[in-house]
Design a protein around this nucleic acid. Structure first.
Lengths: 240, 240
DNA sequence: AAGTGGTCTAGACCACGGC
DNA sequence: CCGTGGTCTAGACCACTTC
């Protein structure tokens, strides 16, 4: 019965891909019924358990919803909450183009607390990049990034004025980011930041500390950002 | 082969329960290996697919981790991120006891924007409770809560000085809260809040707007909170 | 009644990990 | 090498929804 095709991809994945593509292409819309387990089994010449595997897996991911006795239906489009985005991506998501001005970029050695957070030895050399972030022509934020100088050799040679740091980490160093733990509070601008961000000295700023982890669970990047109030709002969803 | 026991519970669930109980009881600790699919199949007299179902399902929930070629292991205890907590619960989670002073409590009718957010008709009557929140003896926050006056009749008769609003909603009104959408930014205290929170007029405060939904997906409670910088930090996790 | 998903069997072969 | 999980078969009966 087995037809002996290319092995590489499991049958249940091929079925899933086919369904996903139809949803992507708009052939299948939210609420539409997907083929039943038995139909899929017949169409793809697989057993019921395999067709079932494909569907339960898609249901687990939220792509489809299964209703006992009724069928399997395309789920309403997912909204991503608490999504980790780079500054460039955040601006793009609200239809703005972002750029940066690098204030300083170099190697620092005295930042023991940050090194510790990054899981690096006491006194480790860190790449430190300090930027002012713009939305249009307005300065919105001041961000300081720290990374292992050893792991990210040559990072300072990359121009970060218009390229996303996230993209560089992924494409040049093969580091896939997974999640970030963040701490958010408020603070006053103070003299230096007031000048940089064009605000009053005692203007309230949102302060966000991010420790960003790779898919392997290793801390990779530490970011300390200060954002102009009124120009930047954090949106999150919490669950009970 | 079937032994015909009580049907009610599927075999794979019985297997899961047994494993969960052993973890709960401490017989099985994080990192410990769980029986293999084949062992479980033999022990419970079920087929491999059924034993497998039990384990993949537990893995999906994060109770165990499966490692190809190695085995199935008890996962490290789950930490809940982005958890929706009431103020009382938050304080308790860091070992502090919280109390409140109610500044005002009554029915308001002009808050059209908030009524709209709560999915109520224009001009709907709202319960409005305004409180100062303390940690120990220090005033930490100012919170304004809004709820449907119609749905929560009699809420104003409850003393909220020491009882959590979350608890009252659940126990007195049978409302189970599910999640909240929040917006966070920064602002200056201004004169009135400066007095209430014992800070300077231009001190930076964290401002959090919460729209809290019940398990049925209906918006139930709107909270606007202002938190003293340095005394309150929001901790979240974002995912890529 | 017909069709759907939910549970389950009794095996099979493969890919991977650790000894 | 042996044991592990990953994929898969060719069916079965039950529970549920829809008509």
């Amino acid at each position: 019965m087995k037809v002996l095709i290319e092995k590489a991809e499991p049958a249940y994945r091929r079925i899933q891909s086919a369904i996903r593509e139809r949803i992507e292409a708009g052939t299948l819309n939210p609420g539409d019924m997907v083929e039943s387990e038995r139909e899929l089994a017949r169409i793809y010449s697989v057993s019921l358990m395999t067709a079932r595997h494909a569907l339960t897996d898609l249901a687990r991911e939220g792509v489809v919803e299964r209703r006992h006795g009724a069928g399997t239906f395309v789920a309403p489009p997912k909204i991503h909450f608490n999504k980790l985005l780079g500054y460039t991506e955040q601006m793009a998501s609200v239809g703005l183009t972002a750029h940066s001005r690098v204030l300083s970029a170099g190697i620092v050695k005295g930042e023991h607390e940050i090194a510790a957070r990054l899981g690096l030895p006491h006194g480790a050399a860190l790449v430190h990049i300090e930027r002012v972030r713009f939305a249009g022509n307005d300065p919105i934020a001041h961000e300081s990034c720290y990374l292992s100088a050893e792991e990210f050799r040559g990072l300072l040679d990359v121009s970060l004025d218009r390229v996303s740091l996230f993209t560089v980490l992924q494409q040049n160093y093969g580091v896939e980011l997974a999640y970030s733990d963040e701490e958010i509070d408020a603070t006053d601008a103070g003299h230096d930041l007031a000048v940089l961000l064009h605000v009053e000295r005692d203007a309230a700023l949102l302060r966000i500390h991010q420790l960003i982890f790779s898919t392997s669970g290793r801390p990779v990047l530490y970011v300390r950002g200060l954002y102009r109030s009124g120009r930047h709002t954090v949106r999150i969803r919490r669950f009970r």
